[in-house]
Computed example of a mutant assay.
Amino acid sequence: MNDILTAGRAFLDREGRLIERRLAAVLFDDADPAGAVDAVRAYRNSDGGFGHGLEPDKRCPDSLPIDVERAFDVLMTAAESPRYVETRRPLGDSEMVREACDWLGSVAHPDGAVPLAFPVVADYPHAEHWSDWAYAPGLNPTAGLAGRLHKMGVSHSWLASATDWTWKRLEAGFDEDAHTLVEVLEFLAHAPDRARADSVSAHVRDWLPGLRWFRADPSDPAYGVTPLHFAPSPDSPWLDLFDEAIIGGHLDRLARDQQDDGGWPITWTPPGTASTMEWRGIETLRALRTLAAFGRL
């Protein structure tokens, strides 16, 4: 199993972008997390948002909510290092995070909701699936952004509005896809109102069957969101949604999916060769983190 880690790290060293290489060093080598924080800073715009293809399916330089979400993920991963606690202020007090919240508030609808992106995406190379649907405010990404900010301990006027909007949407029911449910579960795991979160969470198991893009069967080769996206570690609050055998089957599949070059494949078509390799680096780091968390490395 150590061969999986060695080959995956070698793939990242050869093909991965700087962010994933710095994060891998933080996670597996106890490296200084400041390098990963500085790497994501390069995607930051003067308006406080993030862009420049931080999420690689579009090459738009403008600030987009989806890129802000990806920036938060990098910062939270870097903050998992004990060395982050020793050397840097809490994420909730981070200037980058506060100014990103200011930007989100400036582009949000009056009720607090934000879309994944804006029509400016169409002016740049982008994957075919990025189209009008991504420009409508929704739980994806509003709920996920709010959940991440609650996890980071942020207090901000936009977060308050986004949280209120998310509760109203969820308490009216859920009829969206698996990607959106991943965002919703991030919110439910970290929203401060735990009684309200527990009440909504009781319905999650009923939402799963037939959910679009949910790939429950480990042998299914199609594109999709698997149980390991919902529960990427044994301490996930959502692990008990799935039978132990299902989780084990997906872990086996994840290990088998490693390619001869050491990286993991993707099952969609990004806009170019560079973005394809960037995504493979992202997926390789995700696979290594998940396998490590479950004791498979």
Rank of each mutant, 00 (worst) to 15 (best):
L228E: 01
P209C: 03
M96E: 08
A136V: 15
T284L: 01
D132L: 15
Q259M: 08
D73R: 13
R280M: 02
A178V: 04
W264A: 00
K151M: 14
A113C: 14
E99N: 09
V68L: 08
L188Q: 06
P270V: 00
G224C: 03
D67Q: 06
T267I: 11
H150K: 11
R59I: 07
L104P: 03
S161I: 04
L12I: 04
S199H: 15
E186W: 14
A162D: 02
G16R: 03
G210D: 06
S46E: 15
K151N: 13
A113E: 14
L185F: 05
F230R: 07
A178S: 08
T77N: 07
V182D: 10
S236L: 05
T166N: 03
R89Q: 15
V107W: 15
V184N: 08
H156Q: 05
R41I: 14
R21L: 09
V121Y: 12
L208T: 09
P61Q: 09
W207E: 08
A108P: 03
A136H: 15
W268H: 01
E55F: 10
R212G: 13
T226H: 01
V182R: 12
R289F: 09
L251Y: 03
R169C: 13
Y124Q: 05
S81D: 00
D73N: 11
E55P: 02
N45Q: 14
E176F: 10
P237E: 08
T290P: 07
K168D: 13
P209R: 13
P232D: 01
D111I: 04
F214I: 01
E176V: 05
K151Q: 14
L291E: 04
L228H: 03
R212N: 13
L104M: 03
G295D: 05
L185I: 13
A292E: 12
A255Y: 00
V107H: 10
D32I: 12
R296D: 04
G249H: 07
V37E: 04
L181M: 11
Y135Q: 10
F242E: 00
A134E: 12
A178K: 10
L145Y: 10
V204I: 13
W158E: 03
G272K: 02
A117P: 04
E55H: 07
I19P: 02
P227V: 01
A292R: 14
S201Q: 10
A78R: 04
V40I: 13
G281I: 00
W268D: 01
R21Y: 11
N45L: 14
I19G: 01
M96Q: 09
D29F: 12
F50N: 04
A287D: 01
E171A: 02
T276E: 07
G49F: 05
L27A: 12
T226I: 02
D252T: 04
H52I: 08
P192Q: 12
L188E: 05
N45W: 07
P227T: 04
H109N: 15
T284D: 02
